[in-house]
Design a protein around this nucleic acid. Structure first.
Lengths: 189, 189
DNA sequence: ATAGACATGTAAGGGGTTACATGATTTA
DNA sequence: TAAATCATGTAACCCCTTACATGTCTAT
């Protein structure tokens, strides 16, 4: 039982889903804190079913092959909530951009500004994306298409994504402000 | 050549270090964006030396066994800077706390507030730690104990760490504000 | 008819973490 | 004298990502 298994349980507690739907859900709303592709989700679902935490129902698809729609069991929900109350280890991030930034004092200042502006743009885009998602779930709540229980969890992780991206954009701006302050550095290569 | 190898090159470009020193440096200032323990650093140094990006000098230690103090070569610096100019892939985070938060709509509101307050405390501590480190390198710069080139890179990654932790603390506070808003939820188990 | 989305899986390889292994020196 | 720090490495295992494998349905 790794954290991805619990993420799957939580997603299924929000709403029954197929492996395919789960994969898309991970990509859309959970990829900023927990990654998962087909090749990890399908084996995980089989494992969770073996434990009795989830069950599935085979449902013909509107288009494409048959779907296995999974739901969480009462037992699964108990396991999930017990785990959710325990303290979590510190988050771990892997950010190549910061490794590159370690060397920015050895690059021409003008080039550093350009690089940082590029990074800022990418994160500003992501920020807009998550803000759009947040508007989306608020509407789904108003329309009764999402339960209050599922809403809070989704809202919290989206708020975290928004805050995280906003913060990254701010770092880029701060970095652009301090990068050229070193008058000793050459401005061309 | 993975990103950790470049992080090692960057650290050695800042200042010559032993594998032991590098490990401590990673733990202190780089662990928030790139993890590395002894078992990855020693093989990496051997690899980098084989490529000619770094060289080492054996130096007797004040206390303990002999040290191998590594420095970056001209060739290594070229490789590093060429890489630093290329765009970086998006950062990837693994945060169990957010997986737990997905289920917070299914827990009693009072308990959620307690859990979030605990998390806030841990990140507030980390924030203080990184702010202290930033004060430290400013002093080292003033005292001429760190080069301007090394200073900018270190300052940038510390600023990112500070912003990241500040942001996480803010999320905890925001989350505490929205968590109990769902009047339907039970307040005891 | 061909490309793209729907849908479910398996296999293999690479990278990262944890535990193991050794030994000197200093401090309590 | 026992624990902590200094110091360098190896080995094994686990997880994760990438590629592979198969097949249907819809839209262009």
């Amino acid at each position: 039982m790794n954290m991805r298994d619990y993420a799957i349980l939580a997603a299924l507690a929000h709403e029954p889903r197929s492996g395919y739907d789960l994969t898309k859900w991970f990509e859309r709303v959970a990829s900023h804190f927990c990654s998962a592709g087909y090749s990890s989700i399908y084996p995980a679902l089989a494992r969770l079913e073996g434990e009795g935490w989830v069950v599935y129902e085979t449902v013909p698809s509107d288009r494409g092959p048959e779907r296995k729609v999974y739901s969480i069991t009462e037992q699964g929900k108990e396991v999930l909530l017990r785990w959710a109350r325990e303290p979590a280890p510190d988050p771990q991030t892997r950010d190549e951009q910061l490794v590159k930034a370690l060397s920015y004092g050895m690059l021409p200042a003008g080039e550093v500004l350009e690089l940082l502006e590029e990074v800022r743009g990418r994160h500003a885009q992501k920020l807009a994306y998550y803000e759009e998602l947040e508007r989306g779930i608020r509407i789904r709540l108003r329309d009764g298409k999402i339960s209050g229980e599922a809403y809070l969890g989704t809202l919290l992780v989206l708020k975290r994504a928004i805050g995280g991206e906003r913060c990254y954009v701010e770092w880029c701006e701060e970095a652009k402000a301090v990068a050229p302050s070193d008058g000793e550095r050459r401005t061309s290569n």
